[in-house]
Structures are given as structure tokens and as C-alpha cells.
């Protein structure tokens, strides 16, 4: 199985870099990220030992960028008719799903790699809390992973990349901003349970814990669960189509 998902991973990654798509996405990500870091995130006016200005808005930036990476993974296969061909190959379905997901996650890692000069520069000229920055990177990698998994899942439902992009964008933005506090208030739980439940389902809560340097098992499990459940549903939806 290892070799099979690697083949899919290689194929998808090469497909990204063969055309202009990867370069456009990478450039758009870094320009957008740095613009927000410097002009909206208050890079110069905040104590940025932990690169908080860069990390704070990442879920929103990734909500715009990642659908562009994942939109074509399944929908283009369906559009061009290669999905049937792929599904008839003697490759386990999970390997195909995993290969496609990992290639999109790898693309995100390449995006984050472009921001590392900022980390190095901060170390050279200013005070930096490297452990906190590392924790921030773990945070965005986990967010990117869960967004890629959700993006792949949505792409598997759509036959057009454009629809897939728009749907993914909407769902990821909802996911970033969803606050279930008022929903739980209506259920009349005690304030502590209300607060716990709403924060446990809140991406921002988990993400902020990580970028402020308090990584907990609950935060990691939250993102890993999204990845596992999304990939599981993705496999089921493709399986449904194959049958």
C-alpha cells in the first residue's frame, strides 16, 4: 500500500508543478500572507517574539488558498473522465485518497516554507521565541491538514473545480468563524459545560492555544480527528461512486 499511495502522491505533486498552478498558488499565498502580517497583523507594532502577526490570520488565508489546491483533485478527474480509469486500477481506494490528500498537504508545506526567511530574519535582528514559533508552525500545518482533508472531501462531491472551490471556501470560512456558544446557550447547559463544548468545537480556540505555545492533546486530537473523519468520508463517497 505504501508504494501505491506514493505513486499517487508523486503523480499529483508533479501535476501541481508541471503547470502554472503551483507557482501561482505559492506566489499568491506568500504575498497575501506577508501583506496581512505587515499591514493588518501589526508586525511592527506588536511584540512578535512568537511571530503572532503571521500566525494569527493563517486560518482565514488558508481558507482562501487551500480550496485552490484541492478543487481539482477529484472534480477534475470526474470532469475529464479519468476517475473511472483511476478507480479501475488495482490500487486500494484508501491509497488514492491518501496520496491525493498528502500531495495537497505537501503543497501547503511548500507554502509555509516560503515564510521561513521571516523566522530566520527575526532571529538575526530581533528577539525571537523559537519554541513558540515552532509551535505556531505546528498549528498551521495541522490547520492546513484539516483544511486539505475537508477540501478533498468537498472536491469528491463536485464535478466542476469552480463549484468545488466556492463550496470549499464557504465551508472552510464557516469552519474558521463558527462559534456555537449561542447554540449551546439555547440548550440551557451550565455555563462551564456551555463554554467547554463551544470551545472544544471551535477551531479558533484550538488554533490560538497552539500559536500561543500551549499545545495540548485536545488541540492535536481535534485537528487529527477532522483529518481522519474527512478522509474516511472521502473514501466512502468515492466507494459509493465506484459502486
Amino acid at each position: 500500500m505504501t508504494k501505491q499511495w506514493q505513486t499517487i502522491f508523486k503523480k499529483e505533486t508533479l501535476a501541481f508543478f508541471e503547470g502554472m498552478q503551483a507557482w501561482v498558488i505559492l506566489s499568491a499565498y506568500i504575498v497575501l500572507s506577508m501583506f496581512i502580517t505587515f499591514f493588518i497583523g501589526g508586525f511592527f507594532s506588536l511584540n512578535n517574539a512568537g511571530l503572532f502577526s503571521y500566525f494569527y490570520f493563517q486560518p482565514y488565508i488558508l481558507a482562501f488558498i487551500i480550496p485552490a489546491v484541492t478543487m481539482r483533485l477529484w472534480s477534475e478527474e470526474r470532469k475529464t473522465g479519468t476517475l473511472e480509469f483511476l478507480l479501475t486500477q488495482p490500487i486500494p481506494l484508501l491509497s488514492i485518497v491518501l496520496g491525493k490528500f498528502l500531495s495537497s498537504w505537501f503543497m501547503c508545506l511548500c507554502m509555509f516554507l516560503l515564510s521561513t526567511p521571516l523566522w530566520l530574519g527575526l532571529n538575526l535582528d530581533f528577539e525571537a521565541d523559537n519554541l513558540n514559533i515552532l509551535s505556531g508552525y505546528i498549528g498551521i500545518i495541522l490547520v492546513a491538514g484539516s483544511f486539505c482533508a475537508l477540501g478533498c472531501l468537498i472536491s469528491s462531491f463536485c464535478s466542476s473545480p469552480a463549484v468545488s472551490y466556492l463550496l470549499s471556501l464557504g465551508i472552510l470560512l464557516f469552519f474558521c468563524m463558527a462559534d456555537f456558544t449561542s447554540a449551546f446557550q439555547k440548550l440551557h447547559f451550565s455555563p462551564i459545560v456551555e463554554n467547554k463544548l463551544s470551545s472544544m468545537l471551535n477551531l479558533e480556540y484550538h488554533y490560538q492555544d497552539i500559536i500561543t505555545g500551549q499545545i495540548g492533546t485536545d488541540n492535536i486530537v481535534f485537528f487529527v480527528l477532522i483529518i481522519i473523519l474527512s478522509l474516511g468520508l472521502n473514501t466512502l463517497s468515492i466507494e459509493y461512486k465506484r459502486n
Binding site: G50, D129, N130, L131, N132, L134, S135, I138, K196, L197, M200, L201, H206, D209, I210, G213, Q214, I215, G216, T217, D218, N219, V221, F222, L225, I226, L229
Partner: peptide, 20 residues
Amino acid sequence: AGIMSSITLSLSNFKVDFTE
């Protein structure tokens, strides 16, 4: 939501201080 809240709630006290 059910799976995530039940698992994350049970694990909410294990934290690592990732700051220098």
C-alpha cells in the same frame, strides 16, 4: 461534533508549554 467533543473534552488537561 460528538466524537470530537467527547474525545477532546477528556484530554483537555494535557498541555505542553511550547515557549522558551
